[in-house]
Design a binder for these strands. Structure first.
Length: 482
DNA sequence: TTTTGAGTTGTTCGA
DNA sequence: GTCGAACAACTCAAA
């Protein structure tokens, strides 16, 4: 009887390096069967959005190519995953199953169903960590409770430390010699290009493990040293842009952590500010998932229950204008158009655009979360709702509700020349810097000279910033009086 | 159990 | 232009 293969189930770990499941499956020189299943068990509304599907398509192509390079075919199947896995175990006689743990409530439930299915067929089931640096249940307060505040959470993580080292990619993979029935990637219609709304994505992103590693290297070489200040500047390319790569697991947070640690020069025990700041951002990702583990309805219910009583406005026209990037507030519109054109938005601008929707337009944060979920290539079931709840003030460790971003002040502070606005809102490109973030205050001659017709080539602001700020203070203030 | 210090990212106003 | 105070208590985490 030939060697019984090991089955590797790829999920959000679309990489060969530092992939514990893949590595364990190949141990002892067993042949492997590599599987990806389209359905991750997500409920309606949490299935991957359009931008995520574009990324997934290209990431799966990259993984298929990488695996083919070592003679292994990536078998594609539709879900339910437990059925696809049972079918493959039956066909190949696989004696073991290896996969990375999922942290979403639906993914965790799927883990259990898959375990049961494998066990029923006599296959050994092995689950590995990888998506996070710290397992959500491993970080606890002195009282044994999960954390609700970032700073003590981060301190606890740093105390625990990151002891593990990333694993190399397995050498000498052996493929299961027989062909297995599989779907064709093109039949999944992850992105059909009609219309070709993602046509620019390819010039901004390189999905796949090689692209992820190149992005990390470039970030460390070119930006890490200036990250502490530069990370807030949407007009400069100072952020890592690793978020989609991390989301799909083309690189592991452990690989990133180690690369940053190796790059940080230690000066008299004090670590470099940029590197330290970036490690802290990685811990924010951990914190989001730590919160998600405490609040499985994170995208749907406010972490602080009293925020369920905020009196949101139903403003479909305002919501539509926000989505389109035609609110009349330049930094907000630039961000929303960056999102549409590239599938990504700078973190600073995410906060500004989200604050504008939630506070100035008083639209329910869930509406914004949903749009980001559909349009971000890094849409993540932990980070996205946690970020929105932070802005809305309903999160565990959120901004106080009276902290309302002034998009003009933010624009002038973080995009001082207006070059970010000029890039994404070309109809304002010729306005002088002193008016670029407040075109409604520009004198007629300045507008005319720049070819701007307010209300014609570029909209007037949807709301008065001062008045809408007051309105938000009143609306949010009302819930604490309860 | 009680107490104490602290908490990502801000804005506005008035001196 | 710059600076400090007010904004609002509240909850968390640890001593």
């Amino acid at each position: 009887m030939p060697d019984r293969p090991a089955l590797v189930w790829f999920r959000n770990d679309l990489r060969l390096r530092d992939n514990a499941a893949l590595r364990a499956a190949t141990r002892g020189g067993r042949p492997i069967v590599a599987l990806y299943v389209l359905d991750d068990g997500a409920p309606p509304g949490r299935t991957p959005g359009a931008a995520s599907r574009w990324w997934l398509l290209h990431s799966l192509k990259a993984l298929s190519t990488d695996l083919a390079g070592v003679g292994v075919e990536l078998v594609l199947r539709r879900g339910p995953a437990e059925e696809a896995i049972a079918d493959l175990i039956g066909r190949t006689g696989a004696s073991s199953l290896h996969f990375s743990r999922a942290y979403t409530p639906w993914g965790a439930a799927l883990d259990e169903r898959v375990k049961a299915a494998a066990k029923a067929l006599g296959a050994q089931c092995h689950r590995y960590r990888g998506y996070l640096l710290f397992e959500p249940e491993d970080v606890r307060t002195g009282a044994g409770e999960p954390f609700k505040v970032f700073t003590p959470f981060a301190r606890a993580c740093r105390r625990q430390g990151v002891e593990r080292a990333p694993q190399d990619r397995p050498t000498a993979l052996r493929a299961y010699p027989e062909r297995v029935a599989a779907d064709r990637l093109d039949d999944w219609s992850l992105y059909d290009g009609r219309p070709d709304w993602a046509r620019e994505f390819g010039s901004h992103w390189a999905p796949g493990e090689a692209g992820a590693e190149a992005r990390l290297r470039r970030f460390i070489d070119a930006a890490l040293g200036h990250y502490a200040e530069g990370r807030d500047r949407p007009d400069e390319a100072m952020t890592s842009r690793l978020s989609p790569h991390l989301h799909f697991g083309e690189i592991s947070p452990l690989q990133v952590w180690h690369a940053i640690m190796a790059a940080i020069p230690r000066r008299e025990g004090r670590m470099d500010a940029g590197g330290e700041k970036f490690l802290s951002e990685l811990l924010w990702r951990e914190f989001s998932w730590h919160l998600f583990a405490q609040a499985p309805a994170l995208h749907d219910e406010p972490f602080r229950p009293q925020f369920a009583h905020v009196h949101w406005l139903k403003d479909d026209a305002g919501l539509a204008a926000w989505r389109r990037g035609s609110t009349g507030v330049p930094i907000v519109d630039a961000g929303m158009r960056e999102l549409w054109q590239t599938g990504w938005m700078h973190n600073r601008v995410r906060m500004i655009a989200a604050s504008f929707l939630v506070k100035n337009l008083l639209v329910d944060w869930r509406q914004g979360e949903r749009w980001f979920w559909d349009t971000l290539v890094d849409a993540d079931a932990g980070n996205n709702p946690a970020g929105w709840q932070w802005v809305a003030g309903s999160g565990a460790d959120a901004a106080p509700y009276f902290r309302i971003f002034n998009p003009v002040a933010q624009g002038e502070r973080f995009d001082p020349e207006g070059s970010y606005v000029r890039r994404f809102v070309p109809e304002l490109a010729r306005l002088p810097a002193r008016f670029i973030h407040r075109p409604w205050e520009a004198p007629g001659e300045a507008l005319a000279a720049a070819g701007v017709g307010l209300g014609e080539t570029y909209p007037r602001p949807l709301v008065d910033l001062k008045a809408s700020r007051e309105r938000a203070l009143a609306a949010f203030g009302a819930i604490k009086a309860r």
